[in-house]
Nucleic acid binder design. Structure first.
Lengths: 104, 104
DNA sequence: TCAATATTTAGATGATTGTCTAAATACATA
DNA sequence: TATGTATTTAGACAATCATCTAAATATTGA
């Protein structure tokens, strides 16, 4: 059984400290690309690339405002990751659900 | 500001469909390395490498039982990921999210 | 001790990734 | 239109990654 392509893209996007820092930064409010890049000791094209990957994963939205591009956090896709994660918190040792008889 | 090394290792370990499938497989119960490898169309050394990365991330425990090595799921490290994830559900800029106490 | 089995380690290879500089594109305004 | 600013695209490069085969290590049982 395959994992969904969404989870692949999502984990890929999250598997980078700079990209996770960008997400953390955007929690404080929307920012344009230049402002985001200024927070990192990294070239603007590199940050632009990271923003593109985050956008592809659906973790951020981008909207052109004049000559600026505004980026905003979109946490809806994280719900899938959250659901996947929560399913591990209640481990099932058998592939079938617990029946009243199996609980002692 | 650095992201924790734990999160780095954790996201790295989860950023592979085979490794996530191994975790899903182990939810059904402990399995030795050979049994795990048999579930994939991939060489045993490759699976062994994946298991090593999962173990380094703390996502699985391994115990030698005779000539076999038994692997088991360890979801405690996922708590950190869960906390990180949940913090996005309640944006920190607006602490006005409803709490159980605030609902009347 | 010898042979079979289970697993890991070593080393190689092709693919992917993160980063850079230079160039291109888009927009605002004088 | 011309110039400056904001952002992305293109192309290159080194590092990392996933995978493989072959060899090494460890254990069991005859």
């Amino acid at each position: 059984m395959y994992m969904s392509s969404l989870m692949n893209t999502l984990f890929k996007a999250l598997n980078d400290p700079t990209r996770r820092q960008i997400l953390d930064l955007l929690r404080g409010g929307d920012r344009n690309a230049g402002d985001i890049a200024d927070q990192f000791e990294m070239s603007k094209p590199s940050i632009s690339h990271h923003l593109d990957l985050l956008r592809q994963a659906g973790l951020v939205d981008s909207e052109k405002q004049g000559q600026f591009v505004m980026y905003s956090l979109n946490t809806t896709v994280l719900d899938d990751l959250l659901a996947w994660l929560l399913s591990f918190q209640q481990p099932e040792t058998t592939p079938k659900k617990e029946t009243p008889e199996s609980i002692h």
